Computed example of a mutant assay.
Amino acid sequence: MDSKLVLNSENELRETIDHQPKAQKMIATLLSYIFHPVFVPVYVIYFLLFVQPFLFVALRLEGPDVVIRAKMGILLQSIVNYTFFPLVTVLLLKGVGFIQSIKLKERKDRIIPFIACNIWYFWIWYVWRNLEAVPKELVIFSFAVFMASSIGLLVNIYMKVSMHGIALGTATAFLCLLGFEYGPGMAVYIAIALLITGVVATARLLLSDHTAKEVYWGLAVGVAGLLVATVVA
């Protein structure tokens, strides 16, 4: 594959890849959509609720129906705040002309979506932290998402930081935190998360949507958000 440097609309040099195999581009695009930042938090929460459900010990004494209702309520809230509201926000911004593309390819297009998403992220954290049925780990994760997005907004002033990197950095760091708390049983899941993070980061580079620096900064922002959340939340 050949690569070349081009100037974007903000007069920044970006590397693009010429003669990229069509199948490779399709796979990279598919991975970028599957692990889009609006889906990653929901994947983590679904994992905590149904794949490795070790957080609802207190509710089990009240019967399985209570546990199921609590889990479905939390999952629905996460879909609404982490997926539905951000998507609607971006579509509305595109409709009224505040952003050029729903793909947010330009750094300046990401400012308002970052701010709007921070509102949804703060709201769900604030609600969950005051609900006894929501485990502490979920409160920490929701606050980590909010903090990572907030830090990402600040970094975005200087560069087009990778939103995929932020989301996956937060998710992977959170699973590592659970590994310290719950032991070797988390090892396989952490390995899978690291693999997914590496593959998606590579996909973003292959699509020439980001430089390596922007991807690495995105991952660092995600980890930083989780570290702040563990101390504050």
Score class of each variant (00 low, 15 high):
Asp2Arg: 12
Leu7Tyr: 13
Asn8Tyr: 04
Glu10Leu: 11
Ile17Tyr: 12
Ile17Phe: 12
Lys22Glu: 11
Ala23Phe: 11
Ala23Ser: 13
Lys25Val: 08
Met26Val: 06
Met26Leu: 12
Met26Cys: 01
Ile27Trp: 10
Thr29Gly: 14
His36Trp: 04
Phe47Ala: 06
Phe47Thr: 08
Phe47Glu: 06
Phe50Lys: 08
Phe50Arg: 07
Phe50Trp: 15
Gln52Ala: 11
Gln52Arg: 14
Gln52Met: 09
Ala58Ile: 00
Leu59Asn: 07
Leu59Lys: 08
Leu61His: 10
Asp65Ala: 12
Asp65Glu: 15
Val66His: 07
Val67Phe: 07
Val67Tyr: 07
Val67Ala: 09
Val67Ser: 11
Ala70Gly: 14
Lys71Pro: 01
Gly73Tyr: 03
Gly73Cys: 02
Ile74Glu: 08
Leu76Lys: 08
Leu76Thr: 12
Gln77Lys: 12
Ser78Glu: 10
Ile79Trp: 14
Ile79Leu: 15
Ile79Pro: 02
Phe84Thr: 09
Leu92Gly: 01
Lys94Glu: 07
Val96Phe: 09
Phe98Ala: 11
Phe98Lys: 13
Ser101Ile: 00
Ser101Pro: 00
Leu104Pro: 07
Lys105Gln: 13
Lys105Leu: 15
Glu106Leu: 11
Glu106Val: 00
Lys108Cys: 07
Ile111Cys: 01
Pro113His: 06
Phe114Met: 05
Phe114Ala: 04
Ala116Pro: 03
Cys117Trp: 07
Asn118Tyr: 01
Trp120Asp: 02
Phe122Tyr: 14
Ile124Trp: 04
Trp128Thr: 01
Asn130Met: 11
Asn130Asp: 13
Leu131Arg: 12
Ala133Glu: 13
Ala133Leu: 14
Val134His: 09
Lys136Glu: 12
Glu137Phe: 03
Ile140His: 01
Ile140Phe: 04
Phe141Thr: 04
Ala144Ile: 06
Val145Trp: 09
Val145Ala: 10
Ser149Ile: 02
Ser149Ala: 13
Gly152Asn: 10
Asn156Val: 06
Asn156His: 09
Asn156Trp: 08
Ile157Leu: 13
Ser162Cys: 04
Ile166Asn: 03
Ala167Arg: 01
Thr170Ala: 15
Ala171Asp: 10
Thr172Trp: 01
Ala173Trp: 02
Phe174Cys: 05
Leu177Ile: 01
Leu177Met: 08
Leu177Trp: 14
Leu178Met: 14
Leu178Ile: 04
Gly179Phe: 05
Phe180Ser: 10
Gly183Asp: 05
Ala187Arg: 14
Ala187Gly: 02
Val188Gly: 02
Ala191Met: 14
Ala191Cys: 11
Ala193Tyr: 02
Ala193Ser: 15
Ala193Leu: 08
Leu194Thr: 07
Leu194Trp: 12
Ile196Thr: 06
Thr197Tyr: 03
Gly198Ile: 11
Val199Gln: 05
Val200Glu: 01
Ala201Glu: 04
Ala201Asn: 02
Arg204Thr: 08
Leu205Ile: 13
Leu205Arg: 11
Ser208Arg: 06
Ser208Ile: 01
His210Cys: 02
Thr211Gly: 15
Ala212Leu: 15
Lys213Cys: 00
Glu214Asn: 05
Val215Pro: 06
Tyr216Thr: 02
Tyr216Ile: 13
Trp217Ile: 10
Trp217Gly: 13
Leu219Thr: 07
Leu219Ile: 10
Ala220Pro: 00
Val223Thr: 08
Ala229Gln: 04
Ala229Gly: 07
Thr230Arg: 14
Ala233Gln: 06
